[in-house]
Amino acid sequence: MSRRHDNICTRFALSQLYGVSRLSVFRSRRNFLMDSAVVAKGSLLTLSLPAILSACQRSQLALEQGAEFRVFDAETAADLIAIAARIIPTDDTPGATEAGVIYFLDTIFDEPKRASQLASLKEGLLTLREQLPPDGRYFYELDEKQQDLLLSDNEQTPFFVTMRFLTIAGTFSLPMYGGNRNKVGYQLIGYEDRGAWWPPYGFYDADHVERGE
């Protein structure tokens, strides 16, 4: 057990282990997103969401469909899609784009109580855009390598930390919130979304029975 491992397993990690059950989680989520507001259930159930974005169409389609977002203009949506796509990329399996993370964002930020969080998010995006090359206006216009470099430079900023949090939340939360479409998040990590099981659950308990332990 190296000292490095001790340091790596930060309080953040520990707190996330327990979530609601162990309260340290509440002090780990002190980025600006978590400071206030709940998701209003009613508004989430009345959504009429546009079609899934495919990987090859992602930013362009967002631009064309910009009018369908409730809280983002087309350029903001396209940039957020592009950022989420660098956090959980589309490679040999679906990523944040196919999960519909942008629709998750559009859903939760439509809640009036999140207005100040949305403003902070948009402000963070503007700060990111200020770092674009002189002729650049939007993040999504960069190639992927340039995008990764810029995000690496911003890895410790509240904006990136929040976008990482939201991309993961949008990929793995219940599809009712607009993301995790076709349960691509569950498929990615090998989570069988059956809601009920009977043993054997995995290799080791099957082996336990087989050996008669």
Partner: peptide, 12 residues
């Protein structure tokens, strides 16, 4: 939890 794990795994 899937989301909880995805948030926690890398830093851990």
């Amino acid at each position: 939890t899937p989301m909880g794990f995805a948030l926690m795994a890398a830093p851990a």
